[in-house]
Amino acid sequence: MTDQTGRRWHDMGGLSADPVDPATHDYALWEKRVDALQVLTSTKGLFTVDGLRRVLEDMGEDAFETMTYYERWTASVNQNLLEAGTYTLEELGTKMAEVSARGTTYGEASDPNA
């Protein structure tokens, strides 16, 4: 995560790496929603883009390698909202249980009337 010189994992400029993979993908609806929530909550002053990055960095290299971009953003936005006191862990846990009880797909779980 941080080597003996104080270099942190995300500070990767100049390190050797694989050839660039030019493949790309269209963003899914849930990814666009995470992006929108980040923009809206930071614009409203609940946290800064530096707060977003600080959590992403503190999540570590393993998260970078194993989670998708917007999975990591979800974790960071949530962490920042918890720190801002926007909602509590109890409220989040209760809501997540409610959401996952609605169904087994993203479409079903997104529908509060399911």
Partner: peptide
């Protein structure tokens, strides 16, 4: 997207959005 099995992080996104 919509029809794939729900993931933990998608669950969190939905919960976060509804709480907000």
């Amino acid at each position: 997207d919509q029809d794939a099995p729900l993931t933990y992080w998608q669950t969190m996104e939905i919960a976060m959005r509804e709480l907000l």
